Amino acid sequence: MKKIPFVLFLLIGLSFCAYAQKTMLKTNIPYWLTASPNLGAEVAVTDNVSIELSAGFNPFKFGDDKQIKHWVVWPEARYWLNETYNGHFFGLHGVGGQFNMGGVDIPIWKLKNLKDRRYDGSAIGFGVSYGYQWVLSSRWGLEATLGVGYARFDYDIYSLGENGSKIGENKKNYFGPTKGAISITYVIN
């Protein structure tokens, strides 16, 4: 969690160091629904290539033993079929972060164990993505993207409670969705 200020500083610095007419800021709307503030900056490198860095975090505890604390970053290089910030794009992205989650009832796939345990660890991975950007005005847009790939998880498992004891540790390889967003975008002119 201590790396969050650095990531935010990096995002802000990236947006101000770039050419203003080639920089876009964005935020992932569904990610906000998990109480996770997030921000992204994207810079056009050529007419059809851009680089993006998005980050999000959740520092909150939601009652007794419920928390989905985490920070995550997604760097990405994108190739736009039409022109940057307009239409279809394909990307290569990375993903990395740390998490401390538990006590939350999410009855799907492997997340069902979050109800009875707390997981504290890190993840790093990469993948490919596809997306589409709708131009709403000269500055505003709407972007949807989905990525799949590989991630390596390294984590400790704890029992719930104020002084939850460590009950195990694990490392897992994951193949599947590694990125997803529906973002409101703003081009800086």
Score class of each variant (00 low, 15 high):
M1D: 15
L8V: 14
L8C: 12
L10H: 05
L10G: 05
L11C: 02
I12D: 14
M24G: 04
K26I: 07
T27R: 09
W32D: 13
W32T: 15
W32R: 13
L33H: 09
A35D: 15
N38R: 07
N38C: 06
L39T: 04
V43K: 02
I51R: 03
S54V: 03
S54E: 09
A55H: 01
A55Y: 03
G56N: 08
N58E: 14
F60N: 09
K61E: 14
F62K: 08
G63E: 07
K66Y: 02
I68E: 13
V72S: 15
V73Y: 02
P75D: 08
P75M: 10
E76P: 07
A77L: 12
A77I: 11
W80V: 07
W80P: 08
E83D: 06
G87P: 05
F89R: 04
F89C: 04
F90M: 05
G91V: 06
G96Y: 10
Q98P: 11
M101I: 09
V104R: 02
D105P: 02
I108R: 00
W109P: 02
K112L: 00
K112G: 04
Y119N: 03
D120E: 10
G125D: 15
F126S: 11
W134L: 02
V135W: 02
L136H: 00
S137Q: 01
W140A: 01
W140H: 01
A144E: 03
T145I: 05
Y155V: 03
D156L: 03
I157K: 02
Y158L: 06
Y158E: 12
L160H: 08
K166N: 14
K166Y: 06
G168D: 12
K171P: 09
G176L: 12
G176R: 14
K179Q: 15
A181N: 14
S183W: 04
I184Q: 14
Y186A: 13
Y186G: 15
V187I: 05
V187R: 13
V187M: 13
N189S: 10
N189M: 09
